[in-house]
Design a binder for these strands. Structure first.
Lengths: 341, 341
DNA sequence: GCAGAAATCTATAACGTTATAGTTTTTTCA
DNA sequence: TGAAAAAACTATAACGTTATAGATTTCTGC
């Protein structure tokens, strides 16, 4: 008992071996003690924890991963293109924040315009380099969702799909967004609305479009979708397309726009004809940040909380990883009139 | 030779063992063959490569990492706060793009407002969970840079430091930015300029400020720094601070603003007094995206390419990881008059 | 006081890889 | 022809962890 402790093996990071030497126990015992196994004595556990603590022991992730197959990695597979004021950044941060204090690391796997959307997904599954993956920009019949689901690889999506597969998701209710903004435009006396819709390939395009038509029907407004550009077409294109449409006959007097950047281009497009927002037309859009009202005070803005999405998706994915049998967590974020800023 | 090949071990991911069985060679030989070692016969290498290829062999990252200590991970330690239209997202993507085709994965470690900036850095170093790290928002005497440098942990920074430590970095020349915008404001006949400077704790605040004063001196303009807000203070605060200053005596007739979002708030702040941009005052800012000119056509915009930073930093860091003896790669991105959009 | 049960602890092997120190085979050339 | 050198390949151990099966010690009850 009064013996000098055996010398620490070299210096460097402490491992289970270091603790074993320091405590006189076997490596396996130390391992079990640290995971609070039932066949280890209380006093032993206490001692082991104390030593581990004192030495600043941290389990080696590579060894853990090799031994157990668990990577403790969550991958975010995000597109690089799309909206520049894109939500990816908030989503990344809020997901990372939700994962704080857990063993999970967040790795970013962008996929590129010149690349198949499936490539990074296949890579992840084939190399087993993550325990789960979060996707954005879902498509109605998303092959990534099918692939992951077939292989039982845990995932969660930002946006719903029409695959019939029951998976964790977080989605903003774009149907409600469109309906609410239409209602507000009707309240302001607008009669003929133009929708700058998201690209048709994306899941949420259909939601927003049906919400738009439904709303217009409910309020007896004339409804129309901009034919020559969508809300991710890029500023120049949208500006031109809106200008062209607003110059033609039977000009709309209200617009609902599917993205924040598109809203600015749509405004300048109309303004290029000498039209004045709030007088000749009104325009509604959603926004995660909070500057559109500075851009033009008159824009009708519905606030969208993207941080909520990242947080929810991270937790939903963890739950799916840790127990694949429970029902997938799903959330539809419904905007209300109160979210008009 | 005509013997049936031994059955593949189970199915699952092929390993070196699988290839060894398939080829009749030892595992070590397969390993050496795949890394093109000089003591393996050409014909053997060819055969091994062919089999590896056919089976879709991918080295196991965990095993590699455990055995060699190399993680093949590059960590991005980014602050979550700061400019909402912040450059982090572009930087992440361009770094990831630069790493495409290499063995590196990108992990994001945000650090949070309530947290010591050193925490994620210490974690990375202590747990050896990355081969190198990219930091942003450097401070003149940045403790993270000191810490990493002392421990010989490879890193690269977005922004310079005044530590005297010779490390890889990419920096935008904010001195030149200020000087150029001052020159442009002088050309437009402005006489008294106000700088909405970055927070003084950040490295680039000093650069921008000295560039501003230098420029004003060169052109014989009166120079002043906004005292009650900085360019990351948040929209409301900046709006109010600018409004207050512009309402007071000896009003400036030009502004240089350190961030894109701050530019919008500064404009609305001045406008709230009835001042008109382009007539009563001019305002210059830099921007990574391209919408400020839609916000107010009259804003003087200097374009900053953030993608370049991510690309450069990723490559510089890889170079530092692979050869710590060569000179660190450093780049100062100098804007010119031509970058005025 | 002793058999059996319960409580603790440990030895071993394995995950997939590579560095090291061999061993075997082939070539060279005196 | 045969010894030395060169070329080609292999066995072993190790990285840090955990699951498994087994070993040892202590307790229990009669």
């Amino acid at each position: 008992m009064t013996n000098a402790l055996p010398p620490l093996t070299e210096q460097g990071r402490p491992t289970l071996k270091t603790i074993a030497a320091e405590s006189g126990l076997a490596v396996a015992t130390v391992s079990r003690a640290l995971k609070d196994a039932s066949d280890i004595g209380e006093e032993t556990k206490r001692r082991v924890r104390e030593i581990a603590n004192r030495l600043g022991y941290r389990p080696n992730r590579a060894a853990l991963r090799l031994r157990t197959g668990k990577t403790n990695v969550i991958a975010l597979v995000f597109s690089t293109e799309a909206d520049v004021m894109n939500h990816a950044s908030s989503l990344i941060y809020s997901a990372a924040e939700a994962l704080r204090g857990t063993a999970y690391h967040v790795v970013i796997m962008p996929f590129f315009a010149d690349q198949d959307a499936m490539a990074p997904i296949r890579y992840l599954v084939e190399t087993e380099s993550a325990d789960g993956v979060i996707l954005n920009q879902t498509m109605p019949d998303d092959p990534r969702v099918r692939y992951l689901s077939e292989r039982n690889f845990p995932f969660a999506t930002h946006g719903r799909t029409e695959t019939g597969i029951n998976h964790p998701y977080f989605d903003y209710d774009n149907h409600a967004f469109a309906a609410i903004t239409v209602q507000e435009l009707a309240r302001r006396g607008r009669k003929h609305l133009l929708l700058v819709a998201p690209p048709a390939s994306q899941s949420y395009a259909a939601h927003m479009t049906t919400g738009f038509f439904q709303g217009c029907k409910d309020h007896g407004l004339q409804a129309e979708v901009l034919a020559t550009a969508h809300s991710d077409s890029g500023a120049v294109r949208i500006h031109a397309a809106v200008a062209e449409r607003m110059a033609a006959a039977n000009r709309p007097d209200g617009m609902v726009v599917g993205s924040t950047t598109a809203a600015m281009s749509a405004v300048t497009g109309a303004e290029s004809l000498g039209l004045v927002i709030g007088r000749d037309f009104d325009l509604a859009a959603k926004e995660a940040l909070n500057f559109l009202f500075r851009f033009r005070r008159e824009i009708i803005v519905l606030h969208e909380d993207v941080g909520k999405a990242g947080d929810f998706l991270a937790r939903a994915l963890m739950a799916a990883i840790e127990d694949s049998t429970t029902a997938p967590r799903q959330f539809l974020d419904r905007p209300t009139i109160a979210d008009l800023v």
